[in-house]
Design a protein around this nucleic acid. Structure first.
Lengths: 265, 265
DNA sequence: CGAAAACTCTCCCGCAGGGGGAGGGTGCAC
DNA sequence: GTGCACCCTCCCCCTGCGGGAGAGTTTTCG
């Protein structure tokens, strides 16, 4: 039986951290002296400690680590770990996007932003909508658009989306994707929705969506500079996207921010 | 002038976060109403807010963000950002290593560990030593070994290292790298050191060092199972390494843990 | 054998960078 | 002028870890 210090030396985990893992139910010492509270470990707990160490290095939260350790089936473990690795990859994508945005922000192109003020009448469309977490939007969009396409057949007309501001400010919000349709069906999640008439400040974002937030910011600045204020969810129109061409440089996304004129006061 | 909520909508930063950034001196509102405390922003502060947002997505600490924003020269900015990107890459390496270790931990090979108990006499060597942070060890090692090689010429004899336990337990500790030398010189950081005689439990780790901690753990378990206890800094001998062959699979590292026999009590 | 050194215990506070919510004052539109 | 959305400050909570105090235990060594 090993005292905590010795065990710490063998696992490269600090004594403090071992105590925390005990408290969290991740790594129970093989024995605890009732009288003194001293923790004692067995040598065969070393690999367990190392698994925890490695998982923590991958930023797996402690409750998730517990779940992984408690699942005795190696396959189930593998699945949980693989899930987390997928999360890591998603994070890597976010990092890539942040780097792309930064490049554009730190070396701004002096080309003026082209913005069009466009009155859009109320329209009826085939839509799928839901409350979604910000991190899940991309996956949700893919699924929803696939379902829309399945029920509407032959892609025709420009697909679009409405994104509630809460999605960005609070991390969760209402999202709606749509395709124009003369007589929208009502099957599965697909149903007809009447988009209200709005006045949109519209600009076009070119290329991947990595740095689309920068375009959002420029549009926002334009809106304010023109004595307008934003109202309601943003609209995006996917003029050219991955469904049209694999060449990301050719993609075109319209961003439309509903606006109204601010009283000059 | 924009109230904080409007600015929040335009930048996709939460109101709370904007207030924190004000408090931290990252993003001062263009005006603050003395009477009410209301914060007001200008539209041209949107890009600044976005830069902060992106940098935070890259886990740049707030003080570092402040430093980047305060450096008006685009080049200086670029350098600071590039530094952080290098840190991100180092983290990626750590992640890769953790994944490799996990693979081995979760699907353990049943091959028995070969351990040799070896009495090592006191030896005089040419060494470089220092107190080093755990994260800097690899870089420090490269520099130290290069300096050793420069003064000793023709590589001969197996290089090695001593790593204090505190390095792993507290994140910082004493590290010593050495090469055998008949008459060690005393130049630059290089100086003669007499390594004390010890009894080592020795095993050999094959391949990259990604999962070397797993071998450490197995060796530790063996030591305990054989009624021994560890004492003093670990020794590593680089039998075959990157200096010998680029083929990582052929690398061989001896791990030697100083041990002494535990009284049967 | 006894004292000093090394170890271990619990408990409280700190950090980053946020979120949740209470309690109360403002701005604006109808 | 009244209601409602907005804004303010302040406090506590979260995660995962470190520092340190103060007290009790074990080990070691003379």
């Amino acid at each position: 039986m090993l005292a905590i210090g010795e065990f710490s030396r063998l696992t490269h985990l600090s004594v403090r951290t071992l105590r925390r893992y005990h408290e969290a139910g991740l790594l129970e010492p093989a024995a605890v002296d009732d009288a003194t509270g001293y923790r004692y470990y067995r040598a065969d707990q070393i690999p367990v400690a190392q698994i925890i160490h490695r998982l923590r290095e991958l930023d797996v939260p402690l409750p998730e680590v517990r779940r992984i350790l408690r699942s005795p089936d190696p396959d189930a473990r593998g699945t949980l770990v693989a899930n987390h690795l997928r999360r890591l990859e998603a994070e890597l994508d976010r990092t890539r996007a942040a780097v792309a945005s930064l490049r554009r922000l730190l070396q701004p192109e002096p080309t003026a932003l082209e913005v069009e003020l466009r009155a859009v009448p109320a329209t009826t469309v085939a839509a799928i909508e839901d409350d979604v977490d910000h991190d899940d939007v991309v996956a949700w969009y893919a699924g929803a658009m696939a379902e829309l396409d399945a029920f509407l057949g032959e892609p025709a007309g420009v697909p679009g989306g409405l994104y509630d501001n809460a999605l960005f400010e609070k991390g969760r919000g209402h999202v709606l994707v749509y395709r124009p349709a003369a007589e929208p069906p009502h099957r599965g999640r697909v149903h007809p929705v009447e988009l209200p008439a709005v006045e949109l400040a519209v600009t076009t974002h070119a290329g991947e969506h990595d740095d689309i937030d920068v375009t959002y910011g420029e549009l926002g600045a334009w809106v304010v500079a023109n004595a307008l204020a934003v109202a309601g969810p943003v609209r995006e129109h996917y003029l050219v996207g991955p469904r049209d061409t694999p060449d990301a440089a050719a993609w075109r996304t319209e961003i439309g921010w509903p606006v109204f004129r601010v009283a000059p006061h």
